Computed example of a mutant assay.
Amino acid sequence: MSTNTAPRLPHDARLRQLADEVWDAVAASDEYAATELILRALDEGADPESVLLDVIARVQGKVGEEWAANRMTVAQEHAATAINERAVGAVSVHPAARTAVTRGRITVACVDGEWHALPARLLTEVLKLRGWRVDYLGAQVPSPHLIAHLHTTNADAVALSGSIATRLPTAHAAITACQAIGVPVLVGGAAFGPTGQYAKLLGADAWAPDARSAADRLAHGPLSRPLPDHQQFDDLPHLGDQEYTLVARNSASLVRTVFNALEAAFPAMAAYDDLQRERTAEDLAHIVEFLTTALYLDDEALFTWFITWTAHILDARGVPVQSLPPALNLLAGELKDFPRAVRILRRGTEALAAPHATAAGTTV
């Protein structure tokens, strides 16, 4: 008997096709089409975890790529992210995603100052699918509020999410505070490095590169509860030179001083309009912020990655990358009495002079 039914695609191919269709809807700012595609796939038997991680997370990754390439504005990126968040919500209430609690209790939160909440929300839904009871606290959770919550819930672990490396000093404080009351911490997100190197440096009990790996790690066995005073702040001895503290404390004045001097060092800036000058000030603030984080971690590579990534972003937007070396030189002059800061800035200047310096780097 003949039939007009098309051959069914393999599982991975169906997920890729669904991701492409959802991307088209998200790119068109069509929330209804995006959620309908997700719900239809679940109705047809798609695995909810795969829909979350192989479809929605993949689409969100493309949103970031399109923004970096200047093919999507900040407003469009925010709108696309909001649609993806609502798509996650649609999965969470679908009958296919209703799972009984068979495991313990996990608190999922973003580091204080971290607004990128979608990775933490994805992890929350995956853990719920795996049978965990999850307290999802959302974006930028101050450490005192996190600790107060833990005192009332007897959580088995905290899953702490961070996407921006400049929040790592705050993450360190949160990790230490959780461990001080006996709650182990699993961290994840781009902030902790592509291999989790900053998770280890800051004393986290475990690290995972993505939501699926995090859920697998927690399912493998309970994280050991730390003993009181397990983690101490003297585990970063380089902070004894006070460079991090002094640069962080004076960051606003550093930005103002370098901004005022940059016009002479980079004559093209004299023709900038008000918006361009505002953007330049913002870029300088980000440079100083990453410098202070590199000082906290004593990691030159973090700063060189950031400065070459910044060059890539500026280049994609038609902004002269030649403004960066003068800015770094001016900063080095202002910080001449801070040897670690000067060394990090020099490495940044050298990285910009290297071939392919504007190529996109590995996400940190």
Rank of each mutant, 00 (worst) to 15 (best):
S2E: 10
P7A: 12
R8A: 06
P10H: 07
A13H: 09
E21Q: 14
S29R: 13
D30H: 08
A34P: 02
T35L: 15
L39H: 06
L39A: 14
L39V: 15
L42K: 06
G45K: 05
A46C: 03
E49W: 00
V55E: 02
G61C: 00
G61A: 06
W67R: 09
A69Y: 11
N70A: 15
Q76D: 15
A82V: 10
I83F: 09
N84E: 09
R86P: 00
A90R: 08
P95E: 08
A96R: 13
T102P: 02
V111E: 01
A117Y: 00
P119F: 04
A120P: 07
L122S: 05
T124N: 12
T124K: 03
V126W: 06
V126P: 04
V134L: 08
Y136C: 02
L137V: 04
V141S: 01
P142D: 07
I147S: 03
A148T: 12
T153Q: 11
A157G: 05
L160P: 03
I164L: 13
A173S: 14
I175P: 07
A177W: 06
I181P: 04
L186Q: 06
F192G: 10
D210K: 07
S213C: 10
L223F: 08
D229G: 08
D235Q: 15
H238N: 08
S253N: 11
S253F: 08
T257L: 06
L262E: 11
A271V: 05
E282Q: 13
L284Q: 05
A285H: 07
V288S: 04
V288C: 12
T293W: 01
F306K: 02
H312R: 03
L314R: 14
N329K: 11
G333Q: 13
F338H: 14
R343C: 02
H356E: 09
A357F: 08
G361F: 00
